[in-house]
């Protein structure tokens, strides 16, 4: 129903000289499939089978390949981002859920939750080159944009493990609020943002000193504290704002990335889980695990403009320009 100009995208489309053809990929945990969405038209284009229980998803820096953790197949599949055909597999270890690529896209770091390990994969050779022992139930994992650090968060140990990318060894461990879930670096690699599902908090750490700068406690009106379970976190390139998915609180928190004040809570779909920016960072896409849709947030307006039904248990999201 909503016209494109209402979305404030008209100008951008005109400047680009053509309609922006960006594509959003969403893994559907229960449907064993990948949803392909045109977010500008707000349409689900198609749904492609990808393997058993797909969860974590990432796109290569050249946007040619999608990497999808198909947990019940115990592998990470390589999918051609244009043809959507499977072109290979990576040896992820058992039950892969989350993983992170380095900026060059030649190394992948996979959390092996049941084995308390992080597996390092040489992407070109499709080989596991190292396993790093970490805490109990590692989940959230990220690589700093300057490729200095890999951070693995273990949910039951409540710890961040600082892995030096040069040696693939742990050089430091930081105890954080209970059940850390997701991590994100600022574009300048100076800050690490970490969500705690149990404490309902966002912790912001200085990456050099590895000391806590601030703990942000979320409290949205009309939502009990128990329901606020922060998961996905992303920060924009200019470090103006960060966005945190609050799980069963059905909201995305907008955090001022300079003052660390919570500016707003945006109501999205049910059990909001993971987040991804559009390439121009004008929109934010959220996967909503219980309402089976994605929400689109216009970041200039700071408003939810659309929700698109995608399939059962949408989990991860990746965007191709």
């Amino acid at each position: 129903m909503m016209k494109r100009n209402v979305l404030g995208l008209c100008l951008f489309a005109t400047l680009a000289g053509q309609v922006d053809a960006e594509t959003v990929f969403v893994t559907l945990e229960k449907d064993n499939a990948l949803a392909v969405v045109d977010p500008i038209d707000g349409k689900l284009l198609k749904t492609v089978p990808v393997g058993q229980r797909p969860r974590g998803i990432s796109i290569s820096p050249d946007y040619k390949y999608l990497y999808i953790a198909t947990s019940d197949d115990n592998t990470i599949k390589i999918i051609d981002a244009n043809s959507l055909k499977e072109v290979g597999k990576l040896p992820s270890g058992e039950d892969p859920e989350t993983f992170a690529l380095n900026p060059a896209g030649d190394r992948m770091y996979v959390s092996n939750e049941d084995d308390s390990m992080v597996t390092v994969i040489d992407v070109a050779k499709k080989k596991a080159i190292k396993q790093i022992k970490v805490g109990v139930e590692p989940e959230g994992i990220t690589v700093s944009p300057d490729n200095k650090w890999v951070i693995s968060a273990s949910e039951t140990t409540n710890m961040l493990h600082w892995i030096d990318t040069k040696t693939s060894d742990i050089t430091d461990n930081t105890l954080v609020d209970p059940r850390p879930r997701a991590l994100g670096f600022t574009a300048d690699s100076r800050q690490l943002w970490v969500t705690s599902e149990m404490a309902g908090t966002l912790m912001i750490l200085d990456a050099n000193t590895r000391q806590l700068l601030k703990t942000v406690k979320f409290a949205a009106q009309g939502v009990t504290a128990d329901k606020i379970q922060p998961v996905g976190v992303v920060i924009d390139k200019e470090r103006k704002r960060g966005y945190v998915a609050l799980g069963p609180a059905n909201r995305v928190a907008v955090v001022n990335a300079q003052t660390f004040e919570v500016e707003k809570y945006l109501l999205v779909g049910q059990r909001v889980w993971n987040l991804a920016f559009s390439p121009d960072q004008k929109r934010l896409y959220t996967t909503n695990g219980v309402s089976n849709d994605i929400s689109i947030i216009d970041l200039d307006e700071q408003k939810v403009t659309k929700s698109i039904a995608v399939g059962t248990y949408p989990w991860g999201v990746a965007v191709k320009p």
């Binding site: 430091d172 105890l175 954080v176 912790m203 000391q211 703990t215």
Partner: peptide
């Protein structure tokens, strides 16, 4: 609770 959050303790190996 708000005062006593003790996150961020660094453990060196």
């Amino acid at each position: 609770l708000t005062q006593l959050v003790t996150a961020g303790t660094v453990y060196a190996a």
